[in-house]
């Protein structure tokens, strides 16, 4: 697990945003379109330039390249690599910085199993349905056992039935995998189901509601 602290984050969209997320806590970030929700997650992932400090467990990581931050990032578009099968997609997430506890093959199996995607392992992303793609992408994220999981509306394109199933699975995984969760969503129900608390962003600033 990792506690996440954002201190006075400013970018083109965000204005001095500070946020503390405790170890293992799940926080939903909500707000109108263009308020900076996705940008905030990208700041944590190291994908956008910004001012201010980002700390994981009191270690300043804002100068670190994205590949050095041990986190999982699931966006709306998922970005499964189309030239690789689901298993190869998961393998790629373990190709570098693998901690060698157990074999890679075991870790891949475990991740596919946790995301209920074992039966998809030989398929290419183009051969998957929407729900199956979410599971494949989730398996790829979980394989690295990220301390922090960033979810940027990844389930918004799913039908209600699939969404409920994946919410339930994700909630079941949070404790055993010891993940801190930051979730961007427009869906009030999703925030209530997955998050311990919600923060609101408006015009690039956190506001009370």
């Amino acid at each position: 697990m990792s506690a996440v602290a954002l201190e006075k984050i400013s970018s083109r969209i965000l204005h001095e945003v500070s946020l503390n997320v405790a170890d293992g806590e799940a926080v939903a970030i909500q707000g109108p379109s263009g308020s900076g929700k996705s940008t905030l997650l990208k700041v944590v992932a190291g994908l956008v330039t910004h001012q201010g400090r980002v700390l994981f467990d009191d270690t300043a990581v804002h100068g670190w390249a994205p590949h050095r931050r041990r986190l999982g990032y699931l966006s709306q578009d998922l970005h499964l690599f189309p030239h690789l099968t689901v298993r190869q997609n998961v393998w790629l997430s373990l190709a570098f910085g693998f901690d060698h506890q157990g074999s890679r093959a075991e870790r891949i199996e475990e991740a596919l199993c946790l995301a209920r995607a074992q039966h998809l392992h030989n398929r290419y992303p183009a051969q998957l349905s929407g729900g199956e793609r979410q599971r494949a992408a989730l398996a790829r994220c979980l394989a690295r056992r990220p301390g922090v999981l960033l979810l940027d509306e990844p389930f918004s394109s799913l039908d209600l039935g699939n969404r409920h199933t994946i919410w339930r699975d994700l909630n079941a995984l949070r404790q055993p995998l010891q993940m801190t969760l930051l979730l961007v969503t427009h869906d009030e129900t999703e925030a209530q189901v997955l998050a311990d608390r919600t923060v609101w962003l408006q015009h690039g600033q956190i506001v009370s509601r």
């Binding site: 190291g46 994908l47 590949h67 931050r69 966006s75 578009d77 690599f81 997430s93 190709a95």
Partner: peptide, 23 residues
């Protein structure tokens, strides 16, 4: 090729060089 694929690869632990070669 959507650049977000490379960014996704970075978050999965691939350096920009490896993301270029493998993705």
């Amino acid at each position: 090729v959507d650049q977000d694929y490379a960014r996704m690869a970075w978050t999965l632990g691939l350096s920009p060089g490896w993301a270029f070669l493998l993705v």
